[in-house]
């Protein structure tokens, strides 16, 4: 490997370094995404915020069991009309009796988006989205109620330009308007 190590003589070195710097100064080469004026449309398997399909879920608690940071809590629910659930009476902890079931709620303050829960669900009840840049103002918003959790997460910066990233020979990553 001695040919790799061979130092360059200082004069050539300085000239080459300055020339390279100047080359980058004058040629268009920007790699940055101008977030939030532009936002990215992420690939479909991107792991973002997710909700659960109330009708599909069978209340098996597998997701709660697999969650590494224990972000999921199961809330007691009653199966109502058309398969939708309604809240169980206040104070009811045990899930006993007819039409009683449980549904998962994710604490976004703890979730690490590993998607173990999504993958372990035997009926594939979770609905993944690609929204990844939500911010919460209050501590309580991290821990939504089940009803709030069911609402699909809203993307911030709705008016921004949607782009997709592309590998680019010149800039590494370039951004094109999303189709």
């Amino acid at each position: 490997m001695s040919e790799v190590r061979k130092p360059r003589d200082p004069l050539t070195g300085h000239v080459k370094a300055l020339a390279k710097g100047f080359k980058y100064l004058v040629e268009p080469n920007r790699m940055t995404l101008d977030y939030p004026a532009e936002t990215m449309k992420l690939p479909p398997n991107y792991r973002g915020f997710f909700t659960v399909d109330d009708k599909k879920c069978i209340g098996c608690s597998m997701c709660e069991m697999v969650c590494p940071p224990e972000a999921i809590t199961m809330v007691p629910r009653i199966i109502g009309e058309g398969g939708k659930t309604i809240p169980a009476p206040e104070g009811e902890k045990e899930v006993k009796g007819p039409k009683r079931t449980k549904r998962p709620v994710v604490n976004w303050g703890k979730c690490i988006f590993c998607y173990f829960c999504v993958d372990v669900c035997p009926v594939d009840a979770f609905i993944p989205t690609q929204v990844h840049d939500l911010a919460f103002e209050k501590d309580s918003e991290y821990r939504p109620s089940y009803e709030d959790y069911l609402k699909p997460p809203e993307e911030p910066y709705k008016n921004s330009k949607k782009v997709i990233s592309k590998a680019d020979l010149k800039r590494g990553v370039s951004y094109e308007p999303a189709p």
Partner: peptide
């Protein structure tokens, strides 16, 4: 290589 590895200052 030009701007870092063989830059005389780095060497």
């Amino acid at each position: 290589e030009d701007i870092w590895v063989k830059n005389p200052v780095v060497q």
